[in-house]
């Protein structure tokens, strides 16, 4: 196990810095727009926003290749965007339009894009962990060297499927990156009320899974930790468990009055905002200027608006197709 505090500050150049900043700001603004569209009832159902956690998704994707599989949770817009799923197809999905990445049938919690090897958008906590192990097993049986990256929240660690999956992945020596986003709250229940051991990375030892914790509020630290994790998996063929300590700035979903945490706690975490952190790092090193940031904001604004326009212009699937794809034929 590796302690997050011992990581030295990673290096960066302007090009990479701007790319990371762009992706994080895209996620942030996309989520803010989604919240706005939810209040306008353009988006319905459950909507779980990723604001505050952007460094995790963006940091992880830097080390994954197009051959790697990704399985995610119901708080997955950021993962999908960072993976390169088209923002318009994500927005259209949330509008329930057939131009959405899942034909509008899944909504916010079920983004699928097989061309990007993005396998959901899985909304039963912990339910996709066994799938990830199975996909990695299939890769191994077919002699493929790809990684299956499985995002889940710390809430999933209380599920039996986490423990079964960690054991199976280690037992079968398959290439799963178990990527825990520990945002400290499973809906409204704090980590300390859910887990007897709160240093979650320690749970890797029980299954013989190499594990580490990382500061999930810093994209450069994230990037470095995942480089190490993926290098380990690719060379050993064994699973790896990475706990990314992060925080969601907004409510669990759009129905959450946040009675379970105080505003001061949220404010303290906001001081570690991953976007400000990277921006300040880049500015301090004179790698970028404020003009660069303005340009990113402008570009993101255009991209998000393009996504909204695409969703607005989309069409609803005819009711006659309701039962299409219950079975293949």
């Amino acid at each position: 196990m590796e302690n997050e505090e011992t990581n030295p500050s990673p290096t960066i150049d302007a090009k990479l810095g701007l790319a990371l900043l762009y992706q994080m700001i895209l996620i942030r603004r996309f989520e803010e727009k989604s919240a706005e569209l939810y209040t306008k009832e353009k988006i319905r159902g459950f909507l779980h926003l990723y604001v505050g956690e952007e460094a995790v998704a963006v940091g992880v994707m830097q080390s994954l290749t197009e051959d790697d599989n990704i399985l995610s949770t119901y708080r997955e817009h950021g993962h999908a965007l960072a993976r390169g799923v088209d923002p318009g197809s994500i927005m259209a999905e949330m509008y329930g339009k057939r131009e959405g990445c899942s034909m509008g049938r899944g909504g916010s919690m079920h983004l699928f894009d097989v061309a990007k090897k993005f396998y959901g958008g899985n909304a039963i906590v912990g339910g996709h962990l066994p799938l990830a192990v199975g996909m990695a097993l299939a890769s191994k049986k077919q002699g493929q060297n790809n990684i299956t990256c499985c995002f889940f929240g710390e809430g999933a660690i209380a599920e039996g499927e986490f423990h079964e999956s960690m054991n199976l992945a280690a037992l079968w020596k398959v290439s799963v990156l178990f990527l825990c986003e520990n945002n400290l709250y499973g809906m409204g229940t704090a980590l300390r009320f859910s887990h007897s051991i709160q240093e979650l990375e320690k749970k890797g030892d029980a299954y013989g899974v190499e594990s580490a914790a990382v500061n999930g509020m810093d994209v450069l630290e994230m990037k470095k930790a995942v480089e190490k994790a993926t290098a380990y998996i690719r060379s050993s063929g064994k699973p790896y468990f990475l706990v990314c300590n992060t925080y969601r700035f907004r409510a669990h979903s759009m129905f959450d009055a946040q009675l379970y945490r105080n505003k001061k706690e949220v404010e303290v975490w906001k001081e570690r905002d991953p976007i400000s952190t990277l921006r300040n790092q880049l500015l301090e090193k004179n790698l970028i200027s404020n003009d660069d940031i303005d340009l990113i904001e402008e570009k993101v604004k255009t991209e998000v608006q393009k996504a909204v326009d695409f969703a607005e212009a989309g069409t609803f699937e005819p009711i006659g197709e309701l039962t299409k794809y219950v079975y293949s034929s």
Binding site: P130, L131, L137, A138, Q142, E161, S165
Partner: peptide, 25 residues
């Protein structure tokens, strides 16, 4: 490799079977 004993983890190994099907097996 083709006849795999699994531990008593019904959710885990049935899910892994489903995942292996997604992965082309």
């Amino acid at each position: 490799d083709r006849i795999m004993d699994v531990p008593l983890s019904e959710s885990g190994f049935v899910g892994a079977g489903i995942g292996a099907a997604l992965g082309g097996m």
